[in-house]
């Protein structure tokens, strides 16, 4: 379990993390969302003893990471940014180094090392020195080392960052499989689709402040703002576009092409049905009426906009 209590981090005049309180229950996967500079990585760095907090507490499994980092991190695996590895070591040697620090026996490390390297598809490279590995290979190895000692908590900072599309899919699949293995996962990302796909809950921060923290399912339902793509069988005249723009709950309507326009709509599902009827009353034969973009994305944009 991860607990952040009134966590604050000041960098001179900048408040990178501002009174952040958050709890990640055991065996849950929580996405930590926010734009660049929101304070995601700073929070994760405090949690992993890379930097200290200005005030507040960061607690892992009941142990304050600032005052007792060794005990707090005993049951934690972490990937922060894209870590660099020691170029003179091979992946297996790296796992042996970290495994020994974590109290594993050489036999355990060799056995587990094979498993985790297999899990991230790095077995082929286990005896090659890391010096010339690509960023994607290093990222996969970083995940492998985090899993090595079978920790209860995984802290992942943008785990798919720097990976090609295939690598991103593979890492997501790995995290999904970890979810089934009773891990508590706290992962930051600015990829909303990734969080929506992988996580049980999401916490959104901006300028160091927590904006919202809820389950993905609930966040989807509370998101009222949606982008709706409307397609008609004929070209849409300008006066009808103007009429749509002034309809209730419509924030904007923008033509994509002569027969398609996108409406940014802030209303309930009932009001959405009313919108469709109102468009049809303008004499348009609607052949398509569907939401575009992810609900989480809409919510994200809204909350970010509001917090500015």
């Amino acid at each position: 379990m991860i607990e952040l209590e009134h966590l604050t981090k000041d960098f001179k005049e900048i408040k990178a993390v501002d009174d952040l309180t958050l709890e990640v229950p055991r065996s849950r996967t929580v996405g930590f969302l926010g734009p660049n500079g929101a304070g995601k990585t700073t929070t994760i760095k405090i949690l992993t003893n890379l930097i200290s907090s200005s005030s507040g507490r960061a607690v892992l499994n009941g142990v304050d990471v600032v005052t007792s980092p060794k005990r707090a991190l005993a049951n934690v695996g972490a990937v922060v940014e894209t870590p660099e590895f020691y170029p003179y070591l091979t992946p297996m040697e790296t796992l042996h180094y970290l495994g020994r620090l974590r109290g594993m026996s050489p036999n355990d490390i060799t056995r587990r090392g094979k498993d985790v390297l297999d899990e991230v598809k790095m077995t082929e490279w286990k005896g090659t020195r890391i010096g010339k590995f690509s960023k994607g290979m290093k990222q996969r190895l970083a995940i492998a080392q985090a899993l090595l000692h079978e920790p209860e908590i995984l802290i992942l900072d943008e785990p798919t960052s720097g990976l090609d599309p295939r690598g991103m899919v593979e890492v997501r699949e790995t995290i999904k499989s970890l979810k089934k293995q009773d891990y508590t996962i706290f992962m930051s990302s600015h990829l909303l689709g990734e969080v929506q796909e992988i996580c049980d809950s999401a916490a959104l921060i901006n300028r160091g402040k927590l904006l919202i923290y809820d389950t993905i399912e609930h966040l989807k339902t509370v998101t009222k703002v949606a982008k709706l793509e409307v397609t008609t069988d004929l070209d849409v005249p300008p006066q009808i576009m103007s009429a749509v723009n002034s309809m209730p709950n419509v924030r904007s309507a923008e033509a994509v092409n002569p027969r398609t326009f996108v409406v940014t709509f802030d209303g309930s599902p009932d009001q959405r049905a009313d919108l469709l009827l109102a468009i049809q009353k303008q004499g348009l034969r609607v052949t398509g009426f569907s939401p575009v973009g992810l609900p989480l994305e809409m919510m994200y944009m809204e909350l970010i906009k509001e917090s500015r």
Binding site: T48, N49, L50, P69, K70, R71, L73, A74, V76, A78, V80, E81, T82, P83, E84, F85, Y86, T94, L98, L101, R102, A142, Q145, I155
Partner: peptide
């Protein structure tokens, strides 16, 4: 500088 601290410091080692 080489960012290897990101690998080493988050371990249970003082």
């Amino acid at each position: 500088q080489n960012k290897t601290g990101y690998l080493l410091f988050p371990n249970a080692v003082k």
